[in-house]
C-alpha cells in the first residue's frame, strides 16, 4: 500500500502552465488506475459487520446447522456451502425454521468448475423477512450426483431437469428426470466446458446475390 501511495504522489499533475522539453504543453498525468481487489471489493466479497437482521440469521443458521460454512456477502446475500450428503437436511432446515423461513426458490443452476467438479447453486428468498441466501455444493466430475430438492421446494423440478439436460448433473430422487430443452436422444451436455459438438457441419452455403448463377 505504501509504495502505491508514493507512486501516486509522483504522478501528481504538473504545475499550471509548465512546458515540456520541447516547449509543448504538458498534459496532466492520468490519475485513474485499476483498483486492486482489496481496495474495491466486489458484491461477492465477505462483509464482516453485517446489519442486525442478517447477523441474527447467521447466528441462527450456525446454531441450527453446526459444521456448515456461513458468511454474509457485501450485496447482503447470505451464503452457505455444504456437502452433498447434507444437502436436503440443510434445505429442509432453512425452509422450516420459524425465524428463517426460506420459502421461495428463485433459481437452481449448475456451474462447470472443470477439475473441481460441478457446483450446484441455489438462490433462496424468504418472502416475509426478505432475507436472501445462496446455497451451494460441489459434486465430483466423475460421479455428478446430487440429492434432489423437489421434496423441499416443488418448484425445483424443472430447474433440476434443466441442469441435468445441459450440464449432466444427476439429481437423485427426482420424480421425472428427463431431458427438457434438448431432444431425448441428444448425446452429451452442451454447457460443460469440454463439450465438443461432433455433429457434421451443416451443408448450407450462403452466397451473395452477385455470386449466384442465374
Amino acid at each position: 500500500m505504501a509504495d502505491e501511495e508514493k507512486e501516486l504522489q509522483s504522478q501528481e499533475a504538473p504545475a499550471e502552465g509548465s512546458r515540456g522539453e520541447h516547449g509543448e504543453k504538458q498534459r496532466p498525468a492520468r490519475r485513474t488506475r485499476t483498483p486492486k481487489k482489496e481496495e474495491a471489493p466486489g458484491p461477492h466479497d465477505t462483509l464482516e459487520d453485517l446489519p442486525g437482521e442478517l447477523a441474527r440469521a447467521v447466528e441462527r443458521i450456525r446454531a441450527g446447522l453446526p459444521g456448515v460454512e456461513v458468511r454474509g456477502r457485501r450485496d447482503h446475500w447470505l451464503e452457505i456451502r455444504t456437502e452433498p450428503s447434507r444437502w436436503v437436511e440443510v434445505a429442509t432446515f432453512l425452509r422450516d425454521d420459524p425465524e428463517l423461513r426460506f420459502d421461495y426458490l428463485a433459481l437452481l443452476t449448475g456451474i462447470d468448475r472443470l477439475d473441481d467438479g460441478f457446483e450446484v447453486v441455489v438462490h433462496l428468498n424468504a418472502l416475509t423477512s426478505n432475507l436472501r441466501l445462496i446455497l451451494r455444493t460441489q459434486v465430483p466430475r466423475e460421479e455428478p450426483v446430487c440429492p434432489t430438492l423437489t421434496g423441499v421446494w416443488p418448484g425445483a423440478n424443472w430447474h433440476e431437469r434443466e441442469a441435468y439436460d445441459l450440464l449432466g448433473i444427476r439429481f437423485e430422487g427426482h420424480p421425472d428426470l428427463r431431458r427438457i430443452l434438448l431432444k431425448e436422444d441428444w448425446v452429451g451436455h452442451p454447457l460443460r466446458k469440454d463439450y465438443i459438438d461432433r455433429r457434421p457441419p451443416r451443408k448450407i452455403q450462403v452466397k451473395a446475390d452477385w455470386e449466384r448463377r442465374a
Binding site: L114, D115, E142, D185, V187, G188, D194, Y195, I196
Partner: peptide, 12 residues
C-alpha cells in the same frame, strides 16, 4: 480434464 463428451453415434 477428467471427462470428454462421448463421440456422436446413432442413438439406439
Amino acid at each position: 480434464m477428467a471427462t470428454t463428451s462421448p463421440p456422436a453415434q446413432a442413438p439406439d
